[in-house]
Design a protein around this nucleic acid. Structure first.
Length: 150
DNA sequence: GCCAACGTTGGC
DNA sequence: GCCAACGTTGGC
């Protein structure tokens, strides 16, 4: 069963919000590589939920795919920050998946911890300048990181 | 708040 | 098809 990592800005949507809501559409992804990875996600795939652009940057918990990719309606909403005037309603450019809550960790596993670990040097997450917001996690990386869980 | 690195756009 | 300019991401 494949594994993934998805970024979120906790000021907008955090692991605690996912806990409260139990499930949430993952919308607003506007990057082709990230979108293509979302299209590959399947029901039951597990996802590290990563907090970015905040005080405690790192992995905050786990979610799972509860609905496979379907059009992200926010691309057609002129009032949405995710509006995309160039997207054709007949062929929506952007999609989203729904993510369900699995667990919140007692503390964030810091990015600095992941960066300093040679076992994780292949992850896009720790590579300089990487801005990918949805990425695959290998089986080995997944279990290794689970072992680092705070 | 700063700024390096990135992805996208558009002129040529 | 190249590449400079731009807007954005995201760690620090």
């Amino acid at each position: 069963m494949p594994h993934w990592l998805m970024k979120t800005e906790p000021d907008l949507f955090s692991i605690r919000d996912l806990f409260r809501q139990k499930t949430s559409p993952w919308d607003g992804v506007r990057n082709y590589q990230a979108r293509n990875f979302m299209d590959q996600m399947r029901l039951g795939d597990t996802v590290f939920i990563y907090h970015s652009s905040c005080k405690d940057v790192g992995i905050a918990g786990i979610g799972e795919v509860v609905r496979e990719s379907y059009p992200d309606v926010s691309q057609f909403d002129e009032k949405s920050p995710y509006f995309d005037a160039k997207s054709d309603p007949a062929k929506p450019r952007w999609r989203r998946v729904d993510i369900g809550f699995v667990e919140a960790w007692p503390a964030v596993l810091p990015l600095a911890r992941l960066k300093s670990d040679p076992a994780l040097s292949d992850m896009a997450l720790v590579q300089k300048g990487s801005r990918l917001s949805v990425m695959p996690v290998t089986e080995q990386q997944w279990h290794y990181i689970l072992g680092l869980k705070p």
